[in-house]
Amino acid sequence: MSERVPDQPTCREVVELITDYLEARLPLEARTRLEQHLVFCDWCRVYLEQIRQTIRVAGAVSEESFSPEKREELVRLFRDWKGKK
């Protein structure tokens, strides 16, 4: 099939282009072809959504809360610095 229409990306090609697509760094023609593929390819749409979900979960990874002791240490650092200025 891809030999019949070589300018239409395969799914394998789409998954490699997905970051450039999300970053809006695909050249216009490639972007259009990728979107044309997504029109009929549910699986690649699922993949695209999974990458978006991966980004969302990564964004939710958060640090342990910031302890008062740590805060005090840094405030002391600040006062030292201020004192020396």
Binding site: M1, V5, V39, F40
Partner: peptide, 24 residues
Amino acid sequence: VDAPTASFVSAVAAAAARGTQKAF
């Protein structure tokens, strides 16, 4: 397949039948 895929597949079939990419 569904409508969007049928559009794609039949266009590929056109390219195969005609032997040219532009038939797609």
